[in-house]
Design a protein around this nucleic acid. Structure first.
Length: 871
DNA sequence: GAGTTTGAAACT
DNA sequence: CAGTTTCAAACTC
């Protein structure tokens, strides 16, 4: 870290140089970090001068390392990136304050961030530590990450509260950066929102654009943050374009380039706070997100960032509101425009993008991407297809890597385009914005955009609103109030709707508690056919063969909950579902069992689950992770054979864990990719699944890195397995909830490093809440306890209505018995309850939010219960 | 691009 | 809870 930053700084004179530097740094970093050289480096010196605390890079790093054992965690490049990003960002802003002004100012606006110094000042010494840590972690790779400075504060927090990375970031950034500005900004924002509200009817006053454009452009901005941060939008745009081109190029180049960009961006962050004042922060803005995004880019996980950026759209209103209060992170592009990035969005974006291994070909056109960033779901769908293709096309690791990057490139493109589109809906659309206002609701990317005329986008008629996201530029809505400016209105409206229907914002698609894989459609390899619409459709004339049918639109089959007439849903007929549902899993099991050896029913179930998972992995174009999947698969089987009572979930978990382990041990990068891949795999699933995938990936990642977790969750004990299962399931089902729940990351149970990575990851994801849910609900027990030190997990999602599918059930299933599998069809509304599996009955804290296994409503039942019951 | 169809959401 | 209206997307021309 230290090294990279330094060189970057030194080189910073030119962004281009930065990129090269980064590359060089990568090479250099490792040694430097290890050796005292680092201390000697000018950067360190500078830092020392700045920070009262003597730079003990080694110490710091060691301490951190010891705690988190970052290297392991970071093995997966992406994760590490994230982590680094997390740490870095804060530092970047903070440490930079001191350092940047000197060197960094360069092209980037780093120099602009005088305020940064303010924010960072107290922590200046910390950065070194952090850097060291990060260096260690990342040295193995490029470490574009290394470039930056880990934020000392982050480190501290990290150390202190591994669990709350999110908070850290949010807190750090918010507190530090925003602390000074935040109050003002928040106030201004609120006032803004009020003003906006007052004005809300106004449609596109030119003046409005200026004001609104900034906030509205959030999503875009988010995406752009990275770009904007540089202040190089044009260049960046080009750079992004280049990225796209790069996709085909060698990863190394990409990384280097990305690193360079990321570097600039990072620096840009520093300035942001300052600029931010001028700009209003968006509620959505999340410091962490910014960090992650940037970091990700740097890491070569660029794709991830990009992915994240893609997702930007998802806003959980509740969160948004909260964010508005405090969390908003402001990034200043070189220009006055502020770009806000939501972590959640970022994260979510990751999944979808990843999903499309084919990015280059399938990658949404920039223009398209720009148009619709809104609905992640739509994106997901498209990606699913892409993923399928990719999966089908390639399983090769290297390929997968390439693909992921390409995806990232795509993301970049989208981002670039997005950046272009920052205008309000009402406002005259930028060229890109309302391009397709036509009937199409989703972009090529799958981003949805609404076209509401009378609902003001404050009713469920509005897809954006229903999805818990703000309308974006691509939207062609009129009189839209579903914008950051109107957070209050949005939140109130949402609350009202929720009061009427608590699960109104819950994910519509839920997976049955039973094995995910059992119903995998061949067509939709990634999409479990088992997924069903929460409420079911009511089609009468479309026969569920057109998009009028929500089930069909979601690529899920109709279920018993549907009241459709003449159902001919290609994804699954209602009748079939009813009849098939129960038996299908068993049948599948039997078939699978044939392959496997003698197994008990449970084992069979596990087999099935594992198999499904395995299949998914296999399908996914992937990195080693997939390969790992094989191992994992076997592991799962072996486990099953061994008698692990945990059925499918475990196997899945095991699979994942094994994969992750494998990746970690073997290749850090691969590990990250693997995660991505898995996510992608999952991502194919219609809507929720993608999220789940991401979650799964996260989960996977997390467990390994953390010794504790590994111990707890990963392999050894059954409970661990349960936890794993829960994780996996969580990943599958829990995350889903997007819209409603606005969960905040609080703690990740994982070790610091892992936590950090996770946190970043999570934060990045659009579905912060989702991830959160997952973590909290799923990991919860295990992670919480295991990771204990940091276990502060909070579920803040105001909405929290996640109807996450089955996860709880899954958990239950996984934990206890096949019961869940047997039932097969239970849908869990709220995903996340807790991880019952790990600890026999640990109630996730509160997750009460969501449904227990079956109840869509917030059943008190928690994961604990589920397993028990089922058992 | 305009108009129609459709079904969810909202309302009564 | 059922029926009706409103709404916006999907679809057709």
């Amino acid at each position: 870290m230290m090294d990279s930053p330094e060189p970057s700084k030194n080189n910073n004179g030119s962004s281009s140089s930065a990129s090269t530097l980064n590359n060089n740094n990568n090479n250099d970093d490792a040694p430097s970090s290890e050796s005292p050289q680092v201390q000697e480096s000018p950067f360190l010196r500078f830092v020392k001068t700045l920070s009262p605390i003597p730079t003990k890079a080694s110490h710091m790093t060691q301490g951190c390392v010891g705690l988190s054992s970052p290297p392991l965690v970071f093995k997966s490049p992406r994760i590490s990136h994230r982590e680094t990003q997390l740490t870095k960002r804060p530092q970047g802003t903070q440490s930079f304050g001191g350092v940047i002004p000197q060197s960094v100012n360069e092209g980037n606006r780093l120099g602009e961030a005088p305020g940064d110094s303010r924010t960072s000042n107290s922590h200046q010494s910390l950065p070194e530590r952090f850097i060291n840590d990060t260096q260690q972690v990342f040295d193995f790779k490029n470490d574009e990450n290394t470039q930056y400075y880990s934020s000392p504060s982050c480190i501290d927090k990290y150390l202190v509260d591994p669990g709350d990375i999110d908070q850290m970031y949010s807190a750090d950034q918010d507190v530090q950066q925003q602390s000074t500005d935040a109050a003002e900004t928040s106030l201004s924002d609120q006032t803004h929102s009020k003003n906006n509200i007052l004005n809300f009817d106004r449609k596109d006053g030119p003046g409005d654009k200026v004001e609104e454009s900034l906030p509205l452009s959030e999503d875009f901005n988010k995406v752009h943050l990275e770009k904007a941060a540089y202040g190089e939008e044009p260049e960046k745009m080009e750079g992004e374009k280049n990225d796209v081109e790069w996709s085909s190029q060698e990863p190394a180049k990409l990384e280097s380039i990305l690193a360079a960009d990321g570097f600039d961006k990072r620096y840009s962050h520093g300035p942001l706070p300052q600029d931010v004042k001028g700009c209003e922060d968006y509620n959505e803005m999340v410091p962490t997100s910014h960090v992650t995004a940037e970091n990700i880019l740097q890491d070569g996980s660029e794709a991830t960032l990009k992915h994240h950026g893609i997702r930007r759209r998802c806003l959980q209103f509740g969160e948004a509101a909260s964010n508005a209060l405090g969390r908003n992170v402001k990034l200043n592009a070189a220009s006055n425009t502020m770009i806000t990035v939501k972590p959640s969005e970022l994260v979510t974006s990751l999944c979808p993008r990843r999903g499309s291994g084919n990015f280059p070909s399938t990658s949404p056109k920039p223009s398209d991407s720009s148009q619709g960033m809104k609905s992640t779901s739509s994106i997901r769908l498209q990606r699913m297809e892409n993923v399928k293709r990719s999966i089908l096309s390639s399983n090769v690791d290297g390929r997968s890597l390439v693909d992921t990057r390409t995806e990232s490139h795509e993301i970049d493109d989208t981002v670039a385009t997005d950046t272009g589109n920052s205008e309000d809906l009402n406002q005259p659309p930028s060229p890109c914005k309302k391009k397709k206002k036509t009937s199409v609701t989703a972009d090529d990317n799958g981003c949805k955009r609404c076209n509401c005329k009378k609902s003001k986008c404050l009713k469920l008629y509005c897809d954006c609103f229903a999805a818990g996201t703000y309308c974006t530029d691509p939207c062609a809505c009129q009189g839209c109030l579903n914008r950051p400016e109107y957070v209050e209105t949005v939140v109130e409206t949402k609350q009202q709707i929720e009061s009427r229907n608590p699960i109104a914002f819950a994910p519509k698609i839920v997976q049955p508690t039973t094995d995910i894989s059992s119903h995998m459609d061949d067509e939709n390899l990634t999409t479990p056919s088992s997924a069903r619409h929460k409420r079911g459709c009511n089609c009468k004339r479309s026969m569920c063969l057109k998009k009028y049918c929500e089930c069909y639109q979601a690529n899920v089959g109709c279920s018993s909950g549907c009241r459709c007439e003449g159902c001919k849903n290609v994804h699954g007929k209602k009748e079939d579902y009813v009849a098939f549902g129960h038996t299908s899993s068993k049948e599948r099991v039997s078939s699978i069992v044939e392959e496997g050896s003698d197994c008990t029913f449970h084992n069979k179930l596990e087999m099935v689950a594992s198999k499904t998972v395995y299949d998914l992995h296999c399908l996914s174009p992937i990195t080693p992770s997939l390969q790992c999947s094989d191992q994992g698969k076997e592991d799962a089987k072996s486990r099953v054979i061994s008698g692990n009572y945990l059925p499918s979930p475990e196997s899945d978990v095991n699979m994942l864990a094994s994969c992750t382990n494998y990746t970690k041990s073997s290749e850090n990068l691969h590990g990250s990719e693997a995660l991505l891949d898995t996510n992608e795999m999952l991502g194919n699933t219609p809507y929720d699944s993608q999220i789940e995938c991401s979650d799964a990936a996260l989960l996977q990642l997390t467990p390994l890195p953390n010794p504790e977790q590994s111990g707890t969750s990963s392999f050894s004990s059954v409970p661990n397995e349960c936890a794993k299962i829960t994780h996996s399931r969580l990943s599958h089902g829990c995350i889903r909830q997007l819209p409603g729940g606005s969960l905040r990351w609080r703690s990740s149970p994982l070790t610091p490093s892992t936590r950090v990575g996770e946190a970043q990851y999570l934060q990045c994801s659009e579905s912060d809440s989702k991830l959160f849910d997952i973590l909290e609900n799923e990991t919860p027990d295990i992670l919480k306890e295991a990771s204990t030190p940091m276990t502060s997990v909070k579920v803040n999602s105001p909405t929290q209505k996640r109807v996450s599918p089955p996860q709880s059930c899954h958990i239950g299933i996984g934990s206890s018995s096949s019961g869940g599998l047997r039932s097969g069809r239970k849908f869990i509304l709220k995903a996340v309850p807790t991880f019952p599996s790990l600890s026999p009955c640990i109630n996730s804290k509160s997750n009460g939010d969501e449904d227990s296994c079956n109840s869509p409503s917030k059943s008190p039942l928690k994961a604990n219960e589920c397993p028990q019951r089922e058992s």
